Amino acid sequence: MITASQVKELREMTGAGMMDCKKALTECDGDMTKAVDWLREKGIAKAAKKSDRIAAEGLSRAAVEGNVAVVFEVNSETDFVAKNEQFLGLLDTIQNVLLTQKPADLDAALACTVDGASVADLITNATATIGEKISLRRIAVVEKADDEFFGSYIHMGGKISALAVLKGKEDAKVAKDVVMQIASMNPKYITRDDMPADVVEHERKVQTEIVANDEKLANKPEKVLAGIIEGKVSKNLKDLCLVEQEFFLNPDQKVGQYLKENGAEVVSFVRYAVGEGIEKREDNFAEEVMSQAFGG
């Protein structure tokens, strides 16, 4: 059975109408990803730009110390707790642990100790004291070479954190501009060469279906259609690549051009937006009233 919350989520992701979303979910047996593609293929929805919707509370951090930098996310149940002094103190402790002990992954980070207590224990204690579930969701510990330089940026006090490693002519302004671009425009890859083949193939499949359903293109030669499809694929995928994005400070310029002009190159980057990909628990009063009224 397709629920009202599923329909609502799909509407938020695609901007399509309620009935179209319900039909898409029904046709796809409730599979959200397939439903998004179904709507796109029918020309009802644009690319899902909100698929990584922010749905949980907490804060992220990006911090640099010498040749080591870290990005991490700590979740809480409410935004109110994210302003709690104990919660902020916990983030300070975790930040210091990550920078000094440089754990390889999340499990290793939770096992790190501070004054005889593990990070996992500190989080458990914070949960008990604050009264909400607190969790260290993810971490990235990044080390750079001596000829490379970092850029870091924290947006809205920690709702989004971004870190980049660059090489070339070291310039603090360029580094800051690049991480602000990453934070605001959410690229997934540096260049098209970094994009997995299955991502490209998936987009090609979607665009092939869209073109096939376009009556205006029905009589076009196969070679022309192939060119149209590849053009659409390229257009839709370019915004996923950092160097192909429009530079936020100058939309007439690509990020790649800005980097080249300043003698810099991006080696890697990390971007965390708090709660992305986590479905937030919410009380849907409208759904509850409808359920009671119609005995659902």
Rank of each mutant, 00 (worst) to 15 (best):
A45T: 05
E73K: 05
D147V: 02
A35E: 11
K42F: 00
N96W: 00
F87G: 09
T33H: 09
I139Y: 05
D29Y: 04
F149R: 07
G43Y: 07
E41Y: 00
I134D: 11
D37S: 15
G151N: 03
G116D: 06
A48T: 07
A126T: 10
A62T: 08
R61H: 11
I44M: 15
D146A: 15
V114D: 10
L98E: 06
I123F: 06
V97D: 08
E77A: 07
L106I: 15
I134M: 13
D115F: 02
A111N: 14
R61M: 11
L98D: 08
A24Y: 09
V142Q: 12
Q101D: 11
A47H: 07
G116P: 11
E41I: 06
A56C: 11
A48V: 06
T129N: 14
A109L: 05
T93Y: 03
L110G: 04
A62V: 11
Q86K: 12
D121P: 02
D29V: 02
T78F: 01
D52Q: 13
A56R: 12
C112A: 15
A126Y: 01
A48F: 08
K34P: 10
G151M: 02
E85D: 14
N125T: 14
K144I: 07
A45G: 10
I44Q: 14
A117L: 13
L91K: 04
V68I: 13
A108M: 10
T26L: 13
L110C: 02
A69P: 08
K133Y: 01
R53Y: 13
V70D: 06
A140S: 15
S118F: 00
C112R: 05
V71Q: 04
A48H: 03
D31F: 07
A120L: 10
T100M: 10
L136S: 09
A109T: 05
S152G: 01
S118A: 07
R137A: 09
I130D: 12
V97H: 01
Q101G: 07
C112L: 08
L122N: 07
A140W: 00
S76D: 03
K50G: 14
K49D: 15
E27M: 10
L39G: 11
K102A: 10
T127I: 05
W38T: 00
R138V: 05
L91A: 04
A35T: 06
N75V: 01
T129Y: 05
A45Q: 08
V36K: 15
L98S: 06
D31K: 09
W38V: 00
K46E: 14
K102L: 06
S60I: 01
L59A: 12
S135H: 01
D92N: 13
A128E: 15
A140R: 11
S135V: 12
L59Y: 04
G30N: 08
G131S: 12
T93L: 12
W38M: 08
L99Q: 08
K46D: 14
G58H: 03
N96V: 00
S118K: 02
L88I: 09
F80K: 06
E132M: 03
E65K: 14
V74N: 01
